[in-house]
Design a binder for these strands. Structure first.
Lengths: 365, 365
DNA sequence: TAGTCCGTCTTGAACGATCAAATGCACGAA
DNA sequence: TTCGTGCATTTGATCGTTCAAGACGGACTA
């Protein structure tokens, strides 16, 4: 490799001091235009790139965002969603001058230990959490340590929504959309295959369905009859579908909390419309209509919120200016906000963003 | 956070010099036992963790392994395989004291630029490449720059196998196993749905099938008749399956180069045995028998080979000892080698490992 | 004329670790 | 007694960057 070009090399080449080179790169406004150009030329000629480690040592900022890579679930559904999210995160982060550092952890306790470990060694500037749930200890820990972070997933069960920034997809809106679609097709007995109540995500998805049926004039009693809760997984979906189908008064269409359940429903063999959730490869493969989460946008919003949080905390000041320029860059390119229900919150308050899913129509409905 | 404990704090606490603390952690053998214990106690009491940035600055080693996260394919199959691989990589790397840094790139040119970028700023110690293919420019670039790396995938088309370390799964053995299984079931006209020749992976998988049929006494002419090449994707698989089924002399079973093709074949509706490749969630969901790659092992082997390569190059010497201990740690826990066809190569030569896939039997065959 | 301020650039120090070399000490041989 | 030897530990320098403070000349003010 090119023998390591340092800032001193650039300084010598451009006949200025180290600090001037640094200023050109980090605080261009304090440097005379002519000098600035000369330095930039030198930077280009020598192929200079600031050494992260050295910079980090001085500024305390690593330009690293840590994210946990989760083991693919048995049915790989979560894995897929997460994979696409991670890809988007890496891309959005790169645009803002950050990189994504991976870690694993088997449970929450191990994850907290890993937080500590990482903070002590690699010093990531922020964390991104996924799969938040009721009573998640991770958010409290990070809040207490005052480490910037965002979650992909609402702070289920936490009193106010604004203790930390989060991004999520409106699952209820997704199932509502699916249900509405089936009602418009003329169906009235639209069943729901979901998970046992208690999970934020699952309950949210059920709500969207129930709410839409209610709006469509279906009675609460009937709604209860159309609802079936079971564990996630294809075979469970199949069994649950049978429970709703093999009755005197069978459902005529199904909305499901996951593609796994929907696939199971398809395998039940009746030829009724079925709609899944997450638009996984499996859905695509078998032609299953499914609710799709805008994962690249979720990732972009996560980075955007993180950058805001990072600007707020107390570290370097000079360096911070360069960043806010980067933020500007990202914002320019973002058609993101337009299609999102970005719930604006007052400045200086952790913001949150709730994005709308979309319905991908295929053969199954 | 705990106010940053530095090596000087530990030294003060244990009444020794900074260097002694450093030695306890990196070259324990030069320190008197009594001192060593006292220092370790101090480390524990203060919760000291060596700062990566500072260490990197001195040693030139970042303890970072860079890996590209690929966008999920249309059918998400590659995405899934890669996701699991990445998880394994992160875990194995962590055990050896390394972390995984992600990057994205749209094409090879962009990827080379990213290599350069990363090497200039974050200075990863090594790269992990996936999806290698004929004439891959990335391996040449990295070889030329003398950057350590491993690939998940053979150096297709490169003359000798030993220019760089690689890990791969024996695809031919996988399709051979699948074919053998169908032959044993009494089938003779076992068809193959694969990709057009030209891709290393695809040709390899076809070979395993053809070879097994030949061994089973099927004539070359007949084999050619049973072979169908098409683009990857469920609908293509369905069409191809029809081509092999709707003839005077239809196939009675199918081996496929991917789960997508296999799913297509299933949708063709004939009730014949079908075997896919990669054991993706889709396969699990629909009960498709499939050839499964041992991805966690692949990842573990990648890390193992990388560590070997990293020991060889010319950087610190003291630090190196600590690492080789780590390697030892990993090896202990590794049932990995046992079940793999680890092709041993002479010391100091890049090694490679070819792992055996397994057949996961489900309803489809 | 002297003093102040501003814009531009430079100098020395510091981040936290490791390396290379030096030091102190105990021991045994000359 | 003196000196070399080897072990355990310490000291000073260094990695590449940014921060804080200082230097310098010119313009503007008093």
């Amino acid at each position: 490799m090119a023998d390591k070009v340092t800032i001193a090399d650039v300084a010598r080449y451009a006949s200025v001091s180290r600090q001037t080179v640094s200023n050109v790169l980090n605080s261009p406004e304090v440097v005379r235009e002519e000098t600035r150009l000369r330095v930039l030329e030198a930077v280009k000629a020598l192929g200079y790139r600031a050494n992260q480690a050295a910079r980090q040592m001085r500024t305390g900022r690593s330009q690293l965002i840590a994210a946990r890579i989760e083991p693919a679930q048995d049915d790989g559904i979560n894995g897929f969603v997460f994979d696409r999210f991670l890809h988007g995160l890496t891309e959005s982060a790169a645009r803002a001058g950050y990189r994504v550092l991976l870690y694993t952890a088997d449970d929450h306790e191990a994850e907290l230990a890993t937080f500590d470990d990482l903070l002590g060694s690699y010093e990531p500037d922020a964390f991104v959490l996924t799969s938040t749930h009721y009573g998640d200890p991770r958010t409290d820990w990070l809040l207490e340590q005052r480490i910037p972070f965002v979650t992909f997933g609402r702070p289920w069960g936490l009193s106010p929504d604004r203790r930390f920034p989060w991004v999520d997809v409106d699952g209820a809106a997704g199932t509502a959309m699916a249900t509405r679609y089936l009602l418009d097709l003329g169906h009235r007995r639209v069943g729901f295959l979901g998970w046992p109540s208690g999970s934020g995500v699952g309950d949210d998805r059920r709500d969207g369905w129930a709410r839409t049926l209610t709006a469509g004039g279906v009675s609460p009693a009937e709604i209860a009859e159309l609802d079936c809760a079971t564990q996630d997984g294809v075979p469970y979906g199949e069994a649950a579908a049978h429970a709703l189908l093999d009755t005197d008064h069978p459902v005529t269409a199904l909305v499901c909390a996951s593609d796994s359940l929907a696939l199971g429903a398809l395998q039940a063999g009746r030829d009724i419309p079925v709609i899944g959730f997450d638009d996984t490869p499996s859905a695509r493969a078998v032609g299953l209509t499914s609710v799709s989460q805008p994962l690249p946008e979720v990732a972009a919003q996560c980075v955007s919120l993180l950058l805001r949080a990072l600007e707020g905390d107390g570290a370097g000041t000079r360096a911070r200016q360069a960043e806010s320029q980067d933020v500007g860059g990202r914002t320019d390119e973002g058609d993101v906000e337009r299609e999102s229900t970005a719930t604006a919150t007052p400045e200086a308050q952790p913001a949150h963003v709730l994005l709308q899913p979309s319905l991908v129509r295929r053969r199954s409905a």
